[in-house]
Design a protein around this nucleic acid. Structure first.
Length: 294
DNA sequence: AGCCAGGCTTGGT
DNA sequence: ACCAAGCATGGC
């Protein structure tokens, strides 16, 4: 078995930049032609190359499973698409963002990040997460100038104080994060065990936490546990659904959820990510156009 | 039921 | 330049 600090993964139909920067994970930073972050406590730099992804770690790795699992590079893209019902709107989104993938994130980091995400915009979630990692995460070995920290584990955060967390500018979310950290650290909530439980039960156990509603529970189901049916509905997805399927009518959230569950059956997760990204990037375009016209 | 709770970015004026 | 809106959860 080779142990080198860099490795090339052959993978087709993988839009690395879009995948890392589309609001499912919050710690990826662009660096020249690549992307850097900490995955499961290991610093890594990724770069899109022809027919694959090149990874550089801080030190030699005999086993890259931590990364291949995170990136889900074994997933066959065509299989995902073939599960979608015929749908011009979704087809347009898939065409525009071909190769956008879902990541498989470590459950605690995912849960904590999305607790911090409530009523926050992506850029702010990044800022809060960065502060949290700098102040509470273990320093990790890396290449380059920047210092990197692991995402702080639940034990560490369970021993933090609410004011310390608030100082990371998370506001009222501090109590929710602290409660979640204590539940996980004490073993009262076993995130590993959730892997083995049925979807509905996972959802319920997550929603038992204060600060975790339907949307955030579904984000964790989708991005950490890989539940293909999870369909988190945030403002953007709601906007996309109303625009594409209800002629812009003001359809209430619960109706949108049942609509999505019915339309995509078990495979709404990927559809949701495409709709989310598509409607967001279109919104950016149209507002820039509106500005340019003036 | 409707408002508030951090705070930072974006968009409209 | 300034000001409002957005954000998605729980508590009052």
């Amino acid at each position: 078995m080779s142990t080198r600090s860099s490795k090339t993964f052959a993978v087709r139909d993988y839009a690395l930049a879009t995948t890392l920067d589309c609001g499912q994970a919050f710690r990826w930073q662009q660096h020249r032609d690549g992307w850097q972050s900490v995955v499961d406590g290991r610093w890594v730099r990724l770069r899109q190359i022809s027919d694959g992804i090149e990874a550089v770690a801080a030190r030699p790795q005999s086993d890259w499973h931590w990364l291949t699992d995170y990136l889900q590079i074994e997933v066959d893209f065509a299989t995902i698409l073939s599960a979608f019902p015929v749908d011009p709107n979704l087809q347009a989104a898939v065409k525009a963002h071909h190769g956008l993938r879902l990541l498989r994130q470590p459950p605690w980091e995912c849960l904590a990040s999305f607790i911090l995400s409530s009523t926050k915009q992506i850029i702010q979630i990044r800022q809060i997460t960065e502060l949290l990692c700098q102040r509470f995460g273990e320093r990790v070995e890396s290449h380059g100038e920047t210092t990197w920290h692991a995402f702080p584990d639940a034990d560490r955060l369970a021993n933090a104080t609410e004011p310390e967390l608030r100082a990371c500018r998370m506001g009222f979310r501090a109590t929710y994060l602290l409660e979640a950290a204590r539940a996980v650290a004490s073993g009262q909530l076993d995130l590993m065990q959730l892997r083995t439980l049925p979807s509905e039960e996972v959802r319920q156990r997550l929603m038992d936490l204060k600060g975790v509603g339907e949307k955030i529970a579904d984000c964790v189901r989708l991005f950490a546990y890989g539940h293909a049916d999870a369909f988190p509905v945030d403002v953007w997805v709601a906007r996309a659904l109303r625009q594409y399927y209800f002629r812009g009518r003001n359809v209430p959230l619960p109706r949108l959820r049942t609509f999505a569950a019915d339309r995509w059956r078990g495979c709404g997760g990927y559809a949701q990510q495409y709709l989310f990204h598509h409607v967001r990037s279109q919104s950016g375009k149209t507002s820039r156009l509106a500005k340019a016209r003036r």
